[in-house]
Amino acid sequence: DSWHDTVDGIELELHGADEELLKLAKELLKRGVSEEEVRRIIEELLK
Score class of each variant (00 low, 15 high):
residue 1 D to P: 09
residue 1 D to T: 10
residue 2 S to Q: 11
residue 4 H to L: 13
residue 5 D to E: 08
residue 5 D to F: 05
residue 5 D to I: 06
residue 6 T to R: 13
residue 6 T to G: 10
residue 6 T to S: 12
residue 6 T to C: 04
residue 7 V to H: 11
residue 7 V to A: 11
residue 8 D to Y: 03
residue 9 G to W: 15
residue 9 G to M: 13
residue 9 G to C: 06
residue 10 I to S: 09
residue 10 I to G: 07
residue 11 E to W: 15
residue 12 L to F: 14
residue 12 L to E: 05
residue 13 E to K: 04
residue 13 E to G: 09
residue 14 L to A: 05
residue 15 H to E: 13
residue 15 H to K: 09
residue 15 H to T: 11
residue 16 G to A: 03
residue 16 G to S: 07
residue 16 G to E: 09
residue 17 A to W: 15
residue 17 A to I: 15
residue 17 A to Q: 09
residue 18 D to M: 11
residue 19 E to K: 10
residue 19 E to W: 08
residue 19 E to S: 07
residue 19 E to M: 10
residue 19 E to Q: 08
residue 21 L to E: 01
residue 22 L to Y: 09
residue 22 L to W: 09
residue 22 L to Q: 09
residue 22 L to K: 08
residue 23 K to C: 03
residue 23 K to S: 06
residue 23 K to R: 11
residue 24 L to T: 03
residue 24 L to E: 01
residue 25 A to F: 04
residue 25 A to Q: 02
residue 25 A to Y: 06
residue 25 A to V: 12
residue 26 K to Q: 13
residue 26 K to T: 06
residue 26 K to P: 00
residue 27 E to V: 04
residue 27 E to H: 04
residue 27 E to M: 07
residue 27 E to S: 03
residue 29 L to Q: 02
residue 29 L to E: 02
residue 29 L to R: 06
residue 30 K to I: 06
residue 31 R to S: 15
residue 31 R to G: 14
residue 31 R to E: 13
residue 31 R to Y: 12
residue 32 G to A: 01
residue 33 V to A: 05
residue 33 V to I: 07
residue 34 S to D: 07
residue 35 E to K: 15
residue 35 E to R: 15
residue 36 E to W: 06
residue 36 E to H: 08
residue 36 E to T: 10
residue 36 E to C: 02
residue 36 E to N: 08
residue 36 E to A: 11
residue 37 E to K: 05
residue 37 E to L: 06
residue 38 V to N: 00
residue 38 V to T: 02
residue 39 R to I: 08
residue 40 R to S: 08
residue 40 R to M: 09
residue 40 R to N: 06
residue 41 I to N: 00
residue 41 I to C: 01
residue 42 I to D: 00
residue 43 E to C: 03
residue 44 E to V: 07
residue 44 E to A: 10
residue 45 L to F: 08
residue 45 L to A: 06
residue 47 K to T: 11
